[in-house]
Write a protein that binds this DNA or RNA. Structure first.
Lengths: 198, 198
DNA sequence: CTACAAAACTAACGTTTGTTAGTTAGAATC
DNA sequence: GATTCTAACTAACAAACGTTAGTTTTGTAG
């Protein structure tokens, strides 16, 4: 089953995971730097110092959120690459991957998109590496698609960026707009991103 | 001439505009909250206290950046609405508007996208109102386009979101990728966003 | 009932933050 | 030559920050 680890973490079974969930909600609204440990504690109904019985510090909250999700994307991309089929079908699967993760972890996605630069040391390096690898894999799928005539001969960078920025920002819209059905959303997104709107 | 005020402000003719420019660069990299007045001062080669000879405080830096740009978008949208022609041609003009602003003020766009929520009081209200109006105007163009058969009958929200999130994130990619020619970029973006990639 | 672990508390620490007050050097104006 | 203006400076403040140390409460197993 996909997203099992993600699902377990989102349900917040341990106190630690509860804190991480609360943090992700606050990070989404104000950003990592603007959220204080006292904010997180107050939302949980406890004092800031009590948080340290469960976590090592603020950085751990960020790195758990971001790296956990980045690994999910990396795993998803690997699965797509191993699958047989056309390049267009792979792009479809990537779109669906993003939508699945958005639906299951929309809060944490905000941290991944907006606050990854506040990671430190090895965590930051690892994240940047994963992100670059992800984009490079996506790019080579697009290039192959252009070469064999599946895709229009546009600059690959423009295609990559236009799809990826839509998918990465999806978390903002999904839930502002009444949470439409996931399968309907997938179908619409695939159609709009691949075949355009006119 | 369009963007005159914007261009004047970006050239940094006064000391105050210099500070605002430096701030926008730093805000783009780390976000509003993570940037300190000492950071800004150090980048300018002066002490933090000296900044207050030119500006009233940190908030002013943010609100100048964000509201100035928001007004540029609002003016642009008004111009598009007054223009005759098909709905598709209006969408084209909107795409070009975003690209023009991105090229002329890519730094400030980061603040507008990521840090608007740190505006306070009346500034925040004004921004949110302008943003909602902008989206509503865009949405009604799309709806009209669907009604008269220019556009595919997708959920307007999906179309709006997919175009807008691409355009809003453009500032990240434009300059990471060697600053391609503006007119080429416009043509490619219009083609990809309107007619898709397959 | 006792022992223990989990999870909360109070109090405080050393820094960093945005900002203010008062001062000074140099250039422009009268 | 005196005055005003511009733009920098030093010094410091009060508040807020992440975090630590030590203590108390609470629930559970022997």
């Amino acid at each position: 089953m996909l997203f099992t680890y993600l699902a377990a973490s989102m349900s917040g079974n341990t106190r630690k995971e509860e804190i991480i969930m609360v943090a992700s909600r606050l990070f989404k609204e104000k950003g990592y730097t603007a959220v204080t440990m006292r904010d997180i504690a107050q939302t949980m109904g406890i004092k800031a110092a009590s948080l340290y019985n469960h976590i090592s510090g603020k950085q751990e909250l960020l790195s758990r959120l971001v790296l956990r999700l980045a690994e999910e994307f990396t795993k998803g991309m690997e699965a797509v690459q191993e699958q047989p089929g056309s390049e267009v079908s792979k792009i479809k699967r990537i779109i669906e991957l993003h939508i699945d993760i958005t639906v299951n972890a929309s809060e944490a996605l905000a941290a991944l998109n907006n606050d990854w630069m506040h990671l430190e040391g090895e965590d930051l390096k690892r994240f940047v590496h994963m992100r670059e690898a992800y984009e490079e894999n996506f790019r080579s799928i697009i290039k192959k698609g252009i070469e064999n005539g599946e895709l229009q001969p546009h600059h690959p960078e423009v295609i990559l960026f236009s799809i990826l920025s839509t998918l990465r920002t999806l978390y903002i819209w999904y839930q502002k707009r009444g949470k439409l059905d996931v399968n309907v959303l997938k179908k619409d997104m695939v159609s709009v991103l691949l075949r355009g709107i006119v």
